[in-house]
Design a protein around this nucleic acid. Sequence first.
DNA 1: TTAGCATTTTAGCCTTGGCTAAATTCTCGG
DNA 2: CCGAGAATTTAGCCAAGGCTAAAATGCTAA
Lengths: 139, 139
Amino acid sequence: MTVKNVKFKRLRDAHTRETAEDYVEMIQELVTEQGEARLTDLAHRFGVTSVTVHKILARLQRENLIQSQPYRAIFLTDKGKKMALQSRKRHEIVYQFLRSLGVSEKIAHIDAEGIEHHVSSETLRLFEKFTPHSTKKKP
Amino acid sequence: MTVKNVKFKRLRDAHTRETAEDYVEMIQELVTEQGEARLTDLAHRFGVTSVTVHKILARLQRENLIQSQPYRAIFLTDKGKKMALQSRKRHEIVYQFLRSLGVSEKIAHIDAEGIEHHVSSETLRLFEKFTPHSTKKKP
DNA sequence: TTAGCATTTTAGCCTTGGCTAAATTCTCGG
DNA sequence: CCGAGAATTTAGCCAAGGCTAAAATGCTAA
Ligand SMILES: [Mn+2]
Ligand SMILES: [Mn+2]
Ligand SMILES: [Mn+2]
Ligand SMILES: [Mn+2]
């Protein structure tokens, strides 16, 4: 592997991580919203079948990101919680940065969902730096 | 597919589009640099085996993006050229925008390689708008 | 000219993320 | 309690993009 194609290696690795990041983020969201995440909720949110979700969850469990008993709800492990927190933070920074440029809410949501998996920490810091703080005052 | 999850737009489809974009872009680059693109060149540039390239090229030919005879060089079709041009333009805008924020060359190259596939035309226009023109003067 | 090296192709394997069909398990209203 | 409907799991299919091993083809230098 030459120095030139390191960037394509990163891209492939990013792809294998994207699914995990989106899933742990969504599981966290569901647990916060409604106390637990069910397979069916995930299928609805991602717009795929329950079978697809089931197989992805098997991988995430194998990778020690989630924990669940057969026919029961899904919860994040400590490792999963850590990834979810980082992913959510990254997602939010990218989204707010796009909004600050003037990207519409709808498009910012769509683009952030993809971009979030490809921003290095260096780029992320710069996105933060150039996002005006909202400094919302209490009314 | 509800309106809520359009943003998750079938990860697999997104990935197959990304591969096509990177390949036609690279083929165009090789044709410009050295008159033709060979399978081996692509394998070297992407850091994968020639077998992997061969299979991807079969798909691209099936999708009418490239054209080639057995054991000969690979060329873009008109459709492929169109995609390559758009991809190259997008790639360049993303790269220059990241550089203008202060992202290092190395990291900007890596991040642009991933981000380029996830920026809508709306976001792209705003990236352009906020990238200072280089206005390099002749010495 | 041709032998050997380089390139391309074929065969066959794997993992991931899609799907449908069907079996299993759970849960809740009557 | 119990059965129906909902949720989950299993089985089996597909395509894409990875790989190694080996066969086929192309090319060039001696
Ligand atoms: Mn996300
Ligand atoms: Mn995402
Ligand atoms: Mn590119
Ligand atoms: Mn790319």
